[in-house]
């Protein structure tokens, strides 16, 4: 969890351009259905929510179920009209929130 999420966001874009955003967070996404070597169920631990905001306004979010693979990868697009900051957050079942900011210059 300590690992920083990986982001792929362009540093610059033209006004009105639709940019592609790729995100990946290192996380086991434990389904709660697997058993360990002694046959005990491994408790569920997943990232259940992902959000992306731009200058405080929502752009994209996802409700995630255990059927999303480990190290959740999410790709989507955003239309940028002005320079600003993207804020990405991932919420864990245990309440931990991982968040990262990313600047973009729009000309």
């Amino acid at each position: 969890m300590a690992e920083k999420p990986r982001l792929k966001v362009p540093k610059e874009a033209k006004k009105g351009e639709i940019i592609e955003i790729k995100t990946l967070l290192a996380h086991p996404m434990e389904t709660g259905l697997r058993k360990d070597a002694s046959g005990k169920l491994i408790p569920r631990k997943i990232i259940n929510k992902f959000t992306c905001e731009f200058n405080g306004k929502p752009v994209f979010s996802a409700d995630i179920e255990p059927a999303v693979a480990a190290n959740p990868y999410i790709q989507f697009t955003a239309k940028v009209e002005e320079s600003g900051t993207f804020k990405f957050t991932w919420t864990d079942d245990d309440g931990t929130v991982t968040s990262v900011d990313q600047q973009i210059k729009v000309a």
């Binding site: 639709i18 255990p66 999303v68 693979a69 990868y73 999410i74 790709q75 989507f76």
Partner: peptide, 13 residues
């Protein structure tokens, strides 16, 4: 509307 395109991608089990 700020998404620009109606698209999303991920990896599933």
């Amino acid at each position: 509307p700020a998404s620009g395109k109606a698209t999303a991608a991920t990896r599933i089990r």
